[in-house]
Every structure is written in structure tokens, then in C-alpha cells.
Amino acid sequence: MFVLGLTGSIGMGKSTTAEMFRAAGIAVHDSDATVHELYRGTAAALVEAAFPGTVREGRVDRAVLAAQVLNDSDAMKRLETIVHPLVRASRQDFVAAARARGDKLVVVDIPLLFETGAEVEVDAVVLVTAPETVQKQRLAARPGMTAARLAAIMNKQMPDHEKRRRADFVIDTGGTHAETERQVQELLRRLLGEAASVPAGDKG
């Protein structure tokens, strides 16, 4: 089975691209969605213990938590030591289940793939990117996106040019939806032809 890591900086179109893989029948593990689930379950008590007052009615209040950690690197590191291992475990369970089903290819959507060293878990990395002007337009249209919040997020992310250098494949979402979809389909044709040659148990 081939494990494809999907990543991209904020505003680059990663979520849209992930949906294109799903529409093509490929199972996708979504790290962001997993965090949302953890904040309603397993992680809630752990986060509350580390950041008192951040859990309301049994779930993490993301706005309250963000106010405590976004501009505090030590606090962010404490949060990451709680959340990242839980997300990684969820991802590993997902890959194991897909392997047991006999899937030829799965996608794991990891926003901070290079930043967290997660490339060792996958067989190849596809980077979703777009011109900076397009990225800024998308971010400006997001509700609740402030300059301070954006700066905090960008400070955690590797520059796009470095991600381009390290990625195995690049999908440019700066054009039309159809153009992005064509790139996804082309990549799938290539990978599904190669998936059978990946030894069982290799990475992931």
C-alpha cells in the first residue's frame, strides 16, 4: 500500500485538494478533523489540566485556548506535546485499517508535515501550493482571521519555497478548480500504477 502525505501552508487549498482525493475514492485521514474530535473527547481533560479554563461543557473552547497559546511559544509546545502524539496514533490506526482492507493508496493530510518530521511516516509527499497573491486573497476572506493570528500561524510554518524543494510532488491550486482536479487525477494515475510495487509494511 502507498501512503501519500498531503501538506501545504495555510490558504494554499489543501482542504479542497483533500476533498478531490476523497471524491476519487481514496481514503483520507484529516489531522485537523482529528484534533476537533480529540478536543471533544480524549484530549479535553489533558488540555484543561495544562490550560485551566479552556474546556467548556466537556469540550475545548478553541478560541479561549488560542488566546492562551498563539503568542506564547512555550505554551504552544506544551499543547503540541499533548495533541501531536494523539493525532499520530489516530493516523497510524487509519493506515493500519486501510492496509488490512487492502487499499492500494491512502492519503494522510498533515498540515505541519515537514515541521513535525512526519515525512518519515509516508512513502511520498505532495505539496499543495499557490502564488502568494492568491494565498493572501484567500486568507483575507476568512472570517476571524486577524493579522496577529495569521502571524502566529505563519511563524510555525516552513516557507513555501522550502516545502517545494522537499516535496516529491507539487499541486498548484492557483488556477481553476478543474485545473487542480486534473493535477490530482494525473497524480493518482501515476501513483496507483506504482502502488503495487511498494513492499508491504514499507513506511506508515
Rank of each mutant, 00 (worst) to 15 (best):
residue 122 V to K: 05
residue 79 L to T: 07
residue 116 T to H: 05
residue 96 A to G: 02
residue 77 K to Y: 02
residue 114 F to C: 06
residue 136 K to G: 06
residue 147 A to P: 04
residue 81 T to W: 04
residue 88 R to K: 12
residue 144 G to K: 09
residue 99 R to Y: 00
residue 126 V to L: 07
residue 146 T to W: 10
residue 92 Q to R: 15
residue 99 R to T: 13
residue 95 V to H: 02
residue 93 D to Q: 14
residue 85 P to E: 13
residue 103 D to M: 08
residue 80 E to L: 06
residue 113 L to I: 02
residue 92 Q to D: 14
residue 146 T to K: 11
residue 93 D to K: 15
residue 107 V to W: 01
residue 81 T to V: 14
residue 102 G to V: 04
residue 93 D to S: 14
residue 96 A to H: 08
residue 95 V to W: 04
residue 83 V to A: 00
residue 94 F to N: 02
residue 107 V to Y: 06
residue 131 P to C: 05
residue 115 E to I: 00
residue 108 V to L: 13
residue 146 T to I: 06
residue 146 T to Q: 12
residue 124 A to I: 08
residue 148 A to W: 00
residue 95 V to R: 01
residue 106 V to I: 14
residue 147 A to M: 03
residue 145 M to G: 07
residue 128 V to K: 02
residue 128 V to Q: 05
residue 131 P to N: 01
residue 82 I to L: 07
residue 111 P to S: 02
residue 139 L to A: 10
residue 108 V to D: 09
residue 135 Q to M: 11
residue 148 A to N: 10
residue 102 G to C: 09
residue 97 A to E: 14
residue 98 A to W: 13
residue 83 V to Y: 01
residue 134 V to E: 13
residue 98 A to T: 10
residue 142 R to F: 01
residue 78 R to H: 10
residue 80 E to D: 15
residue 140 A to Y: 00
residue 87 V to G: 13
residue 100 A to I: 09
residue 130 A to C: 15
residue 97 A to H: 11
residue 93 D to I: 05
residue 105 L to M: 07
residue 78 R to F: 02
residue 100 A to H: 15
residue 121 E to F: 10
residue 118 A to K: 08
residue 117 G to L: 08
residue 125 V to W: 03
residue 80 E to V: 04
residue 112 L to V: 06
residue 111 P to W: 01
residue 144 G to Q: 11
residue 124 A to V: 11
residue 123 D to R: 08
residue 86 L to S: 08
residue 83 V to N: 02
residue 109 D to E: 15
residue 146 T to H: 11
residue 151 A to P: 00
residue 98 A to R: 15
residue 140 A to Q: 12
residue 142 R to H: 04
residue 81 T to Y: 03
residue 141 A to C: 08
residue 126 V to M: 11
residue 85 P to N: 12
